[in-house]
């Protein structure tokens, strides 16, 4: 069953069209990789799905579980189960990570009409997940991402993914700024969250990340469109031959 359907999406930033009619369907439980050169519109797609301001959708639609995602505010999308793991998670001084996690989790639950998480349940869950991601408890007392290394920031994103239990995770360049060990820890965290009920869209320049998070489907983006889709072997092919062959196709 289709979880996410992007149909002929056209998006402008200021006066420039970035996405020129992008179509993409992600079924429940699938992992899709989106690869493509700089400027192909990968991050724009992730931002538009999450609802970041500054993008003008001029045509097309995005359906999530059959509902019009573009009609929803970013917080409504989050409560419905959309999660964007940021390429560059922001630092928020003065907002303790623990307070942030609890506020966000309860805001999502409230929006869905669910009871707030009890404190012991919440703490148990955070402890359990942070341990598996190698996140020390004192990190959770600090301001959100303040003073965190690149790897720690990405692990904090994965921690949130585990806590909020979204049905769609978009990982925007999760490998950027990570060394191989940090990448492995973050990828292991993501793999632990794979489930038949959860879909993922993994956005990356490099095939390397896909050695750790193995996709079901690989899409190649160029100049604001998906120009080729295939199995995981497509990623290897790209690594060998580069993106140049697709530039013309677009």
């Amino acid at each position: 069953m289709a979880l996410l359907e992007v149909k002929d999406l056209k998006v402008r930033v200021e006066e420039r069209e970035i996405l020129h009619g992008l179509t993409l369907t992600v079924n429940e439980g699938e992992i899709h990789a989106i690869m493509g050169p700089n400027g192909s519109g990968k991050s724009t797609l992730s931002h538009v799905i999450a609802g970041k301001p500054g993008y003008e959708v001029t045509d097309g639609q995005i359906l999530f579980k059959g509902e019009d995602l573009l009609e929803m505010s970013p917080d409504e999308r989050a409560a419905k189960g959309v999660f964007l793991a940021f390429q560059y998670p922001v630092e928020i001084p003065g907002v303790a990570t623990m307070n942030f996690l609890r506020t966000a989790l309860n805001a999502q639950r409230k929006a869905r009409g669910e009871d707030e998480f009890s404190t012991p349940d919440f703490l148990r869950k955070v402890r359990e997940v942070s341990k598996s991601l190698n996140i020390p408890q004192d990190m959770l007392k600090r301001g959100v991402n303040v003073g965190f290394s690149g790897g720690e920031k990405k692990r904090n994103e994965v921690l949130q993914m585990a806590l909020f239990e979204p049905s769609l995770c978009i990982l925007d360049e999760m490998d950027s700024g990570l060394d191989i060990d940090a990448l492995r820890i973050a990828a292991d965290g993501v793999n632990a969250l794979r489930s038949p009920k959860r879909s993922m869209v993994v956005i990356t320049h490099y095939q390397r990340l896909l050695n750790y998070i193995v996709p079901d489907v690989v899409h190649v983006m160029s100049k604001g469109r998906v120009v080729k889709s295939g199995g995981k072997e497509l990623a290897l092919e790209l690594e060998a031959s580069g993106y140049a062959q697709f530039e013309d196709a677009a």
């Binding site: 999450a50 609802g51 970041k52 301001p53 505010s73 970013p74 917080d75 999308r77 989050a78 409560a79 964007l84 940021f86 998670p89 922001v90 928020i92 001084p93 003065g94 907002v95 307070n99 942030f100 506020t103 966000a104 989790l105 805001a107 999502q108 929006a111 301001g143 949130q160 909020f164």
Partner: peptide, 22 residues
């Protein structure tokens, strides 16, 4: 910062409140 908080499920005013408190 506001977008990050909203993307995590905080409605606008609540996201603002958290940043103002900080």
């Amino acid at each position: 910062l506001l977008f990050y908080l909203k993307a995590r499920g905080l409605p606008e005013k609540q996201a603002q409140a958290l940043l103002i408190q900080a």
